[in-house]
Amino acid sequence: MKRLRHALAAFAALFLFVSAVRAAPAGAPYPVTLPAFPAGPQVLSTVAPDGATQRYSMADLEALGTWELTTSTFWPGDDGTYQGVLLSALLRDAGLAEAAAVRLVAQDGFSQVIPRADWVTWPVLLASRRDGGAMARRDKGPLRIIYPREMDGALHDAVYRLRWIWMLARIEAVAE
C-alpha cells in the first residue's frame, strides 16, 4: 500500500516535472543547475508525524533538486528571481508528504500552518538563493517560502501573504 502510494507520488512528481518542462506556464518555476553550496551548518530541521527529526544544511537541501522562479512579492524591493527546492520535494524527503498540513516556524518564532492543498496545487518554492547567491538574514534569508504568485490570481489574496515565511528554521507536521 505504501509502495503504491509512493509510486503514485512518484508518478505525480514525474507528471508535474514533465508538464512543467514541457509547457511551463507563465510564472511557473523551472529546474535549474547551480554550483554546490560549500559545506555548512544545518539550517533547517523537520519533524515528521511520527516524531522523527531530520536536519538539513543548505547543500543537503539543494541536493533535492533546484528550481528557479521569477516573481513579484507582497513587499517593496522584494521582486526578483529566486532559486531553491520545491517544498513538496522537501516534505516528501522529510516524510511529511502525506501530512494534511505542516507548521512552518521562523527563527524569530513566527509560524504559519500551510495546508496540503498548497503544495499539491502549486509548485511552492523553498528558496535558498536570490539571483544565484545566498540570502542574508536581513534580506529574509537564508531560507524563505516563495509562492508562484504569477501562476494563479488566487495567490494574490492576503491570506497567502502570511504564508510567505522567511528565516525558515523548522517544519513540523500538524496534528489533525
Binding site: W75, P76, G77, D78, Q107, D108, A136, R137, R138, D139, K140, W166
Partner: peptide, 16 residues
Amino acid sequence: AFALDLLILRQRDNRD
C-alpha cells in the same frame, strides 16, 4: 546582530 537584522528587514518592508 539578529535583532538588528530583523529591524532592518522590518524597516525596509515598512517603507511603503
